[in-house]
């Protein structure tokens, strides 16, 4: 009998925890590789003190802001580049430069030019993410069915319904791909940005924990935020994707 997908996931997670627990037991060096119980204990104490929820909230807000900005601008730029060869000729060199610029360079420059503040942090993350969203959506825009454009033209479908009902559904798989990869990359970049120049957030906390060599704390923060991002993906992105693809079933 094949187990259900949920059971398989739970078993896989239990396997990971078991392996970790066994590894920690065998290593017998709690300072270097603490077991799940020690990490959970740290997370519990940090939650009760309010430090962990506060830091996660700061990081979450930065991720949300950078993710929203990069999806909106990246999708618009990608759509324009995919639809107009002239626009693509203008935009493509910019995308190539931004895609090849090291993340650290972007972050440091933003802090220097804008200042050590949240605007610089969000702009830096958005600048890193926008080109990847744009490139993904550009492929989707190139693949749009010209027959549906003709349909909208001869029936004079207004712009709003045309975007909502004709264009976005065709771009949905590309937007979903950009969104899912975007979320996972965005939060990792936000941690670097926080580590380099913010007085709060998970990245800042990780920096402090690194200074005191607190591996349990580093694992507690890292795993807690990863779990939160997985929850966001499972609760928001995946259901949206499933709804957008309902007609395929």
């Amino acid at each position: 009998m094949t187990p259900s997908p949920a059971t398989t996931r739970v078993l896989s997670l239990a396997g990971f925890l078991g392996l970790w627990w066994a590894g920690a037991l065998l290593a017998d060096k709690p300072a270097l590789l603490p077991g799940p119980a020690a990490v959970l204990g740290f997370a519990w104490r940090a939650t009760l003190s309010g430090a962990m929820p506060r830091n996660i909230a700061f990081t979450g807000l930065r991720v949300a802001a950078a993710f929203t900005i990069s999806m909106l601008i990246g999708a618009a730029v990608g759509y324009l580049a995919g639809r107009s060869p002239h626009a693509d000729m203008l935009i493509d060199p910019w995308l190539v430069i931004l895609l090849n610029l090291p993340v650290l360079v972007v972050v440091v420059l933003c802090y220097i030019w804008v200042g050590l503040n949240d605007v610089a942090a969000v702009v830096a993350v958005a600048l890193v993410k926008i080109p990847t969203v744009a490139v993904t959506v550009r492929e989707g825009a190139r693949a749009l069915d010209p027959g549906f454009d003709e349909l909208a033209a001869v029936y004079r479908v207004p712009l709003g319904p045309s975007v909502r009902r004709i264009i976005v559904p065709q771009l949905a798989p590309y937007l979903a791909a950009a969104g899912r990869s975007g979320l996972s990359i965005t939060w990792k970049i936000v941690l670097i940005v926080e580590l380099l120049g913010r007085p709060n957030g998970v990245g800042f906390a990780l920096d402090e924990l690194f200074q005191t060599f607190n591996v349990a704390g580093i694992l507690a923060y890292g795993l807690s935020f990863a779990a939160l991002m997985l929850l966001v993906e499972g609760a928001l992105l995946r259901p949206w994707e499933e709804r957008a693809n309902a007609w395929r079933r």
């Binding site: 549906f148 003709e150 349909l151 029936y155 319904p161 009902r165 004709i166 957008a244 007609w247």
Partner: peptide, 21 residues
Amino acid sequence: VMFQEPRLLPWLSVADNLRLT
């Protein structure tokens, strides 16, 4: 207009396809 192929939007129901235009 009726194109050579039906050109219905596959992600919209029949009624929504018709309402669109």
